[in-house]
């Protein structure tokens, strides 16, 4: 199902073009400090999705990445992922080695002999559905937007394929679909959520390392998990307000 952004209508054309004619630069000069994030956390009852990943439980089987490719028709080539798994190996002499062959879909091989390994673990990656998402901030046409549920989505019928959002995402979560010429990314299986189905990656994970749910609901699985375990987000210094919480995240992970 195509994602359609609700709040942009082309009928606004006349209104907007007359409003903008000559005025945009001026207005933006008058209003330079307007907060530039797309969405605010809704007050009240609406859902506000978050995700949690338990790194200790991840066995690097790649089922989530595989399921995602199938569910979302992600191009097969190893350059396009909505969801991938990274293997970290820290050697006894403190070298950090990271790999993600084909996004982990075909599983992993450990190249470092056991006796040289200090520690090794897997980190599944996907869109963090940042609450202050830099990707939606920069989209020149507003095709990238945040849904009221706090998901960063793309209206592909609207995207012009400029790639600005790809550059703006600090986590490498976006790619340009080579066949469609527009950007694509994780939607947390928005099409499934709307039918009360779980996202494909969540269903595929055999160890229950992935949890998602409504952060507004204090009793949801994800809220309880974050409360119980001390979680961290990726690149907190960038102030993206990521909503993907990792438990047992090593500081080597960027």
């Amino acid at each position: 199902m195509a994602i359609k952004k609700e709040n942009v209508s082309r009928r606004d054309f006349l209104k907007k073009s007359s409003m903008f004619a000559g005025g945009v630069v001026f207005v933006s000069l008058l209003n330079p400090f307007k907060v530039v994030y797309a969405t605010k956390k809704p007050k009240g009852k609406g859902k506000w999705y978050g995700i949690a990943i338990d790194i200790e439980k991840c066995i690097g089987c790649g089922s989530c990445a595989r399921a995602c490719k199938t569910e979302n028709n992600v191009p097969n080539e190893p350059f396009f992922f909505r969801n991938w798994v990274e293997q970290y190996t820290i050697t006894n002499d403190e070298q950090v080695m990271v790999s993600s062959p084909n996004g982990g879909i075909d599983g992993f091989k450990q190249a470092v002999p056991d006796e040289d390994i200090y520690k090794t673990f897997f980190v599944p990656k996907m869109c963090n559905h940042c609450a202050k998402s830099p990707c939606t901030q920069v989209c020149p046409v507003g095709a990238s937007f945040e849904s009221p549920e706090g998901l960063a989505l793309v209206d592909q019928n609207y995207c012009i394929g400029c790639g600005y959002c790809v550059q703006a995402c600090p986590y490498g979560c976006r790619y340009i679909d080579p066949a469609k010429g527009v950007v694509d990314k994780c939607t947390l299986c928005y099409h499934r959520l709307q039918k009360d189905l779980d996202p494909a990656c969540m269903m595929a994970c055999p160890t229950g390392a992935r949890i998602y749910g409504d952060l507004n609901d204090r009793d949801s699985a994800v809220s309880l998990f974050i409360k119980e375990y001390n979680c961290a987000v990726l690149k907190p210094q960038l102030n993206t307000d990521s909503k993907l919480y990792y438990y047992a995240l090593s500081q080597e992970v960027h």
Partner: peptide
Amino acid sequence: EMLITPHLTSAMAI
């Protein structure tokens, strides 16, 4: 689209 529905928080839109 960039001209008729610019997204004002985007540097490129301007």
